[in-house]
């Protein structure tokens, strides 16, 4: 399943009421799980740093969601999941910047990555372009909030984080697509 249907598959209601125009229950469940997963991975697999606070591999989950489930999942789950992690870890004022940074990262990676049948080359392009959005957003946001000095200190860390997360996200999306092609016999 490369893309998730956004329309409800609810059958006509026998009571005569109009079925709600909601996204399908699959989508609701999937987005909930991907968002929570992004937050959990960002929070639990984080390495504290002296300047910035924390180096995390949340980007891996953003790229994974984008490559596997498309740009909507990448944008929504990546953006909201990462912003929630900021709030819960004590980086509250960062949340709006993170929402834009990671949301755009997921959006762009999700548009490029799966294109042309999602070759590794396209995914790498997606990581590069999506990662650039994230790094640029943080740089501009931090420049406005903290001044040029802090923003410049952060820049290489963010680049490193995107490369690391991108590598993991790429490997993860390939491993999971193998799994999805080979469904288990029992749960």
């Amino acid at each position: 399943m490369a893309s998730v249907s956004m329309e409800s598959q609810t059958p006509q209601n026998p009571m005569g009421a109009t079925p709600a125009k909601f996204v399908s229950p699959r989508t609701v469940a999937l987005y909930a799980v991907l968002t929570a997963l992004t937050t959990a991975v960002t929070m639990t697999l984080a390495i504290p740093l002296p300047t910035r606070g924390y180096f995390n591999i949340g980007d891996a989950m953003v790229f994974f969601s984008a490559f596997t489930f498309g740009w909507r999942a990448g944008m929504i789950c990546g953006g909201i999941g990462s912003a929630a992690a900021d709030l819960l870890l004590g980086f509250g004022f960062f949340a709006p910047i993170t929402l834009v940074a990671k949301g755009s990262e997921g959006l762009v990676a999700g548009l490029l990555g799966p294109a042309y049948r999602g070759t590794t080359r396209m995914k790498i392009l997606g990581i590069w372009a999506g990662g650039s959005c994230m790094v640029t957003t943080y740089f501009v946001g931090e420049w406005i909030l903290f001044g040029f000095g802090n923003a410049a200190l952060e820049l290489p860390l963010n680049v490193g984080q995107v490369l690391f997360g991108g590598l993991i996200g790429l490997a993860l999306s390939q491993a999971i697509s193998r799994y999805r092609n080979q469904r288990p016999k029992t749960t």
Binding site: F22, V28, A29, Y31, I76, I80
Partner: peptide
């Protein structure tokens, strides 16, 4: 939207 709200609540 209610469905997105539900999704958010479930993820929390």
């Amino acid at each position: 939207r209610f469905d997105f709200g539900l999704s958010l609540a479930m993820s929390l």
